[in-house]
Write a protein that binds this DNA or RNA. Structure first.
Lengths: 233, 233
DNA sequence: TCAAAAGTGTTCTACCTACACCCATGG
DNA sequence: CCATGGGTGTAGGTAGAACACTTTTGA
């Protein structure tokens, strides 16, 4: 049978806020748009959702097409569907993706003109893409407050000073690295390696890697107004 | 100009997980589906997104059509777009809505056969609607841990025991009401009224109402690994 | 040997938890 | 006058914030 025959159809797109950490600050990957309208202007990487794929799948596909990377951390962070947001009616689902530092300067597809920009200083973007970045930032902050997802931005081996400066720049704050280090170590999330990073200091900071078992289980939230033991599920 | 002429179009729908609190437990509002396919089976209230409205607007419209209520607390909590989720390809955006207790037994539109069911004991639903409820539950818990949104489920005047039992049933836990009460009062969120609720106990519990100024500002999250003062924005 | 960054120890404080106990009231 | 649920007082513990201090190393 052919249901919903008279219902309106819509152009459905995805746009990706692609974030990376260069060790000092957050950057965002933008592309020069290849199609009209607004051709040759900077924008988020995006694309239309095909009929045989989910929006999430479309976002992965689009991301892979640009970066050649798969299995990135990705999360929906908003839907932009105001009727007037583009010349034609397009509803866009926004995802943010976190790219880890080892793959940071990866081979971008030659097909696109893409470039990393400082997150807080990038060119003007088309349509409502700047709003999309704002919601992505907000979602990232909220999410990172409850779940240890910022590790997705770090290489497999990382030091505590590294992740501290990542937190500093996501939240735009100044951390007491001494207390931060202890808090993090007490979480059980990290496994110490017998190796130091001598690049960035005389003494050198130990490398750690994630304890994946614990990482996956750390789906605990702080429950305001609730006792802290009350986390089930 | 006519852009995107050859791009695929999609049926875009919204589905609403409508939650209410009867003073004892959470309930969900379901409807008997009026159109094929799956006509006459229980489902979430939903509808297609029109060409001249945003998905959010569509959700409000659909919600109002069923309940005659406007300006409910509503939030996106997922997108369901796997190709095989319905007979025909439909991408559905899920919203959850919280209905406050005073409007709880409101006049449902006569157009629909709608009924409140206990959230943890409702009939089988069509398609992936049960998964939608799961993600809504999860989003509600996460959200309510960071923001005081559960007040949306209570009437304008409410007692602390009332909200305590609401928290108990959202998180499926047993609270120490004495400590809960103090914690809540110290938040500055509540304004005490000179009136007691004598319905539910001999002594009677004082009514409170929300301090809206503080309620709106309480967009603070607990930032794991971060000092608590580090909340900006 | 000095500067700089990594990391440890220690104190102070705030808050959370548990629980004893008091309060108000209707039957 | 007592059972019931609302609410306060308080003590002990835990965790965060602040910061002095030690460690490691290259220049």
């Amino acid at each position: 049978m052919d249901f919903y025959k008279n219902e309106p159809q819509t152009l459905l797109a995805v746009d990706c806020v692609i974030l990376g950490f260069n060790g000092e600050s957050l950057e965002i990957l933008l592309v020069k748009r290849g199609i009209a309208p607004e051709r040759n202007k900077w924008s988020l990487m995006g694309g239309f959702v095909y009929e045989d794929e989910s929006p999430e799948k479309a976002a992965s596909r689009v991301l892979k097409k640009l970066t050649n990377l798969e299995d990135l951390y990705m999360e929906n962070c908003g839907i932009f569907g105001e009727p007037g947001r583009e010349e034609r009616r397009v509803v866009s689902i926004v995802y943010f993706a976190l790219i880890d530092a080892t793959q940071y300067r990866h081979i971008l597809s030659e097909e696109y003109e893409a470039k990393w920009f400082p997150l807080d200083k990038h060119p003007k973007l088309i349509f409502d893409h700047e709003d999309m970045i704002s919601t992505a930032k907000h979602t990232l902050r909220t999410k990172a407050a409850l779940y240890p997802i910022l590790f997705e931005l770090l290489p497999e081996k990382f030091t505590i000073p590294q992740i501290a400066s990542l937190y500093e720049c996501v939240y735009n704050i100044d951390l007491d690295k001494r207390n931060f280090s202890r808090k993090l170590l007490s979480s059980g999330l990290l496994i110490k390696l017998n190796e130091k990073d001598k690049e960035n200091s005389r003494k050198g900071a130990f490398f750690y890697r994630l304890n994946m078992d614990i990482y996956k289980e750390k789906i605990m939230s702080f429950l305001r107004y609730l006792p802290s033991w009350s986390v089930d599920e």
